[in-house]
Write a protein that binds this DNA or RNA. Structure first.
Lengths: 135, 135
DNA sequence: TTGGTTGCAAACGGTTTGCAGTTGC
DNA sequence: GCAACTGCAAACCGTTTGCAACCAA
């Protein structure tokens, strides 16, 4: 992912955008808040404002480059959209986020929607989990 | 649902609490924001502050009397917890919220969690839907 | 050259909180 | 009587916006 992706999205290739894209790429699977990115930038002496981080993330989302999630009504978290859809499981003890997919669940969702005369536009499935007891 | 429920929850039976409980009861299935309740109270000349509405809803949630949902990062919406678990489908055109249940989806969720060594504590499933095209 | 982009500070909107006065029990 | 509760206004916190300076094309 590089400057081409930005141009394709009709966005000028600027330092803030490239740096934020880089940071998102080096996350493999982790999810970050706007502030996480902002702090990371500060640590590397990049003089990029928090407002810019928000603006860039919003543009990236609109361009289909990143996904935004609103887990448990606090801060929004972002991740690069690598194309393969997945849902999330959050370990409530450690805060760890696990990604998973289930074609069967997807199918049942479509079925339920259809049964009500609808078609699915989007969906959000989050499991809040706890390490299994070994009783 | 009445004063008994409040006492059971260790809450004093006050006018604000009773009124808010009443309003929640007369919703059958609809979902309201704190402001919705506040406006409803104003219309009936109840002199109850918005802060109180928030405090009462938070207490009701902790007491297991109401459910709070954070659909699409705006305002939180509340509904009375009538015991039977359900998920939500939101018609993105009209904003209408439809409740549904699917024991099969629930089962698959438990399976997925188990497969990762977890047990489900809670979950949130929201389908954003659109009336089916008659192609 | 110029329109998109940026940093800053101020505004925003939903929610929470400190406090002094009030009320249920 | 006294702890629980309330209304009000101010604080909070994540996010957005107005604006003048800046810079990619």
């Amino acid at each position: 992912m590089e400057s081409t992706d930005l141009r394709k999205a009709g966005l000028k290739v600027t330092h803030p955008r490239m740096r934020i894209l880089e940071i998102l790429e080096n996350l493999d699977g982790k999810h970050v808040t706007a502030e996480d990115i902002y702090r990371e930038l500060l640590e590397h002496q990049d003089d990029i404002g928090l407002a810019t981080v928000y603006r860039v993330l919003t543009q990236f989302e609109a361009a289909g480059l990143v996904l935004k999630h609103n887990f448990e009504g606090g801060q929004a978290v972002y991740e690069l959209d690598r194309g393969k859809h997945h849902d999330h499981m959050i370990d409530v003890e450690s805060g760890k986020v696990i990604e998973f997919t289930s074609e069967e669940i997807e199918r049942l969702q479509r079925e339920v929607a259809e049964r009500h005369g609808y078609q699915i536009e989007d969906h959000s499935l989050v499991l809040y989990v706890r390490p299994r007891k070994k009783n």
